[in-house]
Design a protein around this nucleic acid. Structure first.
Lengths: 243, 243
DNA sequence: CCAAAAGTGTTGCTCGTACACCCATGA
DNA sequence: TCATGGGTGTACGAGCAACACTTTTGG
């Protein structure tokens, strides 16, 4: 089980809450934590994996917000995606939940990972900064660890799912695809084996178009087959939309 | 993204909340959800995979509790393990977090999976019932889905980790081990291949003792090597112990 | 015609799977 | 000696990793 780790100096917000109550249990007036949702948005910019950070109290921090009533946690995460990144319809997955406490606040933090097409950085709201997703990102320690963990999971998941899709534009060359994998996995891959393996999955579809750039042979453009229902492995098929 | 899924016929909603607000926003006195932690405890009893349920309002439900201040979520889950199952030092892993809402309550539920040695059912508190972990368990619909999902994850994880360890007594025969896998995976396995594969992992250590029972050749007893630090795959290496 | 990236096959090895018989014991 | 489960080896196929040259284009 996850061994103890530092408690994290997170945000002094002033927020009190009274009454965590419970079905059947009448002890209804103890303090109970605030809840907030944070999202690690990844994108590929200039061949680097980057995350979206915004200004926090005294340093950069992950985009965040609170769920409102009548809103599932997933919906809250989607809303944050929309409000902060201007992001429409992308990949979003729950990561982990933990609690943070300091002298003032007690907060339960539900974290998500979101993937954004490389273009979307353009559409992101002002106040959002895209910084390289390497260990030691300038942000709170807690958020830094969340980012590291998110990256680890992204890497692991790239192996057995099609989520790379969400980091790429609708049409892409094999080189684009391979670079994406190489960037996220942080290791070089063999061109022929990569091509063979990806083609073997049947996820790819070659389009008529080609990408001409530079004085060399043009590259065929591919897209993902609309068979995109396998990236949900290890995520519950239920999540109640309250509303 | 987990597309909207069965909305769960739970909860018609009343409960209003205004304004999801953000860092820097001082609107601090709106309602915020209660938080509770539920644990799906699995054990093997009589060759069946069973879960621990306790009496809820009108039906069985998962063992649960709320985190108190100065207590991490993991610690809360451990406390529940101790209070409800009388469980000391076993495997516990976070599963998923979601929110539930009805006319009265708005709750964020953090779920865990716990694994219990087959013996431990004896030590469980009165009021706990161990029921077969099959789809359609008699409990609330929400809890039922949590159990199903927990089982799915357990099954998946058995493939690439050593968690089977926690469902077995300290010493066990190869048959015990194989039955455990077969029960959880719900499929028969080849004896020789199973043995070879498990030995190849190097996790097992043959003890001097044997298990004599029945009129046939006694079986060698094995135990897991104290190399038990790999079952944390896909779980963050950090989790703040507040306290 | 040159530079630069696109595209293409084969081979060896590893790992998983299928499969059947002898062994040790208690009754 | 018999019934019962414990314990063992081999052969095939699938899939992955390593590896180098030809093709097409723009300049």
């Amino acid at each position: 089980m996850p061994p103890a780790a530092p408690t994290g100096r997170s945000m002094p917000t002033a927020r009190l809450r009274i009454g965590g109550f419970h079905t059947g249990d009448p002890t209804s007036d103890e303090s109970s934590p605030a809840v907030d949702v944070r999202v690690v948005f990844f994108a590929l910019i200039g061949g680097r994996l980057v995350v979206a950070l915004r200004n926090g109290d005294d340093q950069l921090c992950l985009p965040r917000g609170w769920p409102v009533s009548d809103e599932s946690l997933d919906a809250a995460a989607r809303r944050i995606a929309h409000d902060e990144i201007g992001l429409s319809d992308r990949y979003l997955e729950q990561l982990y939940t933990f609690s943070v406490e300091d002298e003032i606040d007690w907060t339960v933090v539900i974290t998500y990972v979101g993937l954004v097409g490389s273009d979307a950085s353009a559409g992101s709201r002002p106040g959002i900064e895209w910084v390289p997703a390497e260990p030691g990102v300038l942000c709170s320690e807690i958020d830094g660890r969340v980012i590291d963990y998110a990256r680890t999971r992204l890497r692991a998941k790239l192996g057995y799912t099609t989520i790379a899709l969400y980091l790429l534009p609708p049409a892409f060359t094999f080189r684009d695809l391979q670079s994406t994998y190489e960037t996220v996995l942080d290791q070089p891959l063999d061109k022929r084996n990569f091509r063979r393996r990806l083609l073997a999955t049947g996820m790819l579809e070659r389009t008529e178009e080609v990408s001409r750039q530079g004085s060399h042979r043009p590259a065929a453009l591919y897209r993902f087959r609309p068979t995109d229902d396998q990236e949900r492995y290890l995520t519950p098929a239920w999540d109640e939309e309250s509303s």
